[in-house]
């Protein structure tokens, strides 16, 4: 049996301060390859912290995290960064695209730091953009795109390096209903291609696209339905 993509073993994340904030409390979480999970919960419940820990942007203060079977506490900062660039794709609420740069250049950013073969870069970018339905926009600068198109560029950037895990933080938070739908359709496509997806959201319609739902409250994680095996 292959390693799960994510295995959290009693993971805690506490932010020190005069009143310490317990963003994650003893979270156990297992994510198999190909799962599509939504994380819901009120703001301040630890959703974003969970996502940052999963994305190796933040480290647990306690507990163990295995990504693709690798104990990330045992590798150094540079290796964690390498792992992040190699195996994780991020989609942010506010896109984080480079302005004044073309769509293709933005997607190529994700291939700069992970030894992706130079000759295959452009082809991979084109392929990723075609998958999100932006094959016709490749040479535009991102300032000229609509919100939905921008988020699809961000998704193309997140998947171009063929990561093990795609993490999306409120991916439709800045989009209206119609464009949200186009983004969610892309997620559905990616899911059916076997990509592992974690989407943090407070929007029920977004959450409904996922097969499995977890809920964060006060740093505790709980499964609301187990979508394992259902599509």
């Amino acid at each position: 049996m292959p390693d799960p993509v994510v295995l959290l073993d009693r993971v805690s994340r506490t932010f020190a301060g005069t009143t310490p904030v317990h963003a994650l409390r003893h979270v156990d979480f297992r994510l198999e390859a190909g799962e599509y999970v939504s994380v819901v919960g009120p703001s301040g419940s630890g959703k974003s912290t969970l996502l940052h820990v999963l994305g190796l942007l933040d480290e647990p203060t306690d507990g163990l995290y295995f990504l693709d079977g690798i104990n990330v506490a045992l590798i150094n900062d540079a290796e964690r960064t390498g792992l992040r660039g190699d195996r994780i794709g991020f989609v942010f609420q506010d896109f984080h695209l480079l302005r004044h740069r073309t769509v293709t250049e933005n997607v190529l950013t994700a291939l700069l730091y992970n030894r992706f073969p130079r000759r295959e870069r452009h082809g991979a970018a084109v392929e990723a953009l075609e998958r999100v339905g932006l094959g016709h926009r490749m040479d535009q600068t991102t300032d000229k795109l609509s919100g939905g198109e921008r988020q699809r560029v961000a998704i193309a950037r997140a998947i171009v390096s063929r990561p093990s895990l795609l993490l999306a933080d409120e991916p439709t938070g800045n989009l209206d209903t119609a464009t949200s739908e186009s983004v969610l359709e892309v997620f559905d496509d990616l899911r059916s291609d076997g990509l592992t997806l974690v989407v943090v959201t407070h929007d029920e319609t977004v959450s409904a696209h996922a097969a499995r739902h977890v809920r964060m409250v006060d740093g505790f994680l709980s499964e609301t339905t187990s979508g394992r095996g259902t599509r």
Binding site: F66, I70, L74, I75, E79, G82, L83, N114
Partner: peptide
Amino acid sequence: LGQPPPSVVRPHL
């Protein structure tokens, strides 16, 4: 304990 496999690439530019 999960040893880091050799497939961990160090970031490079």
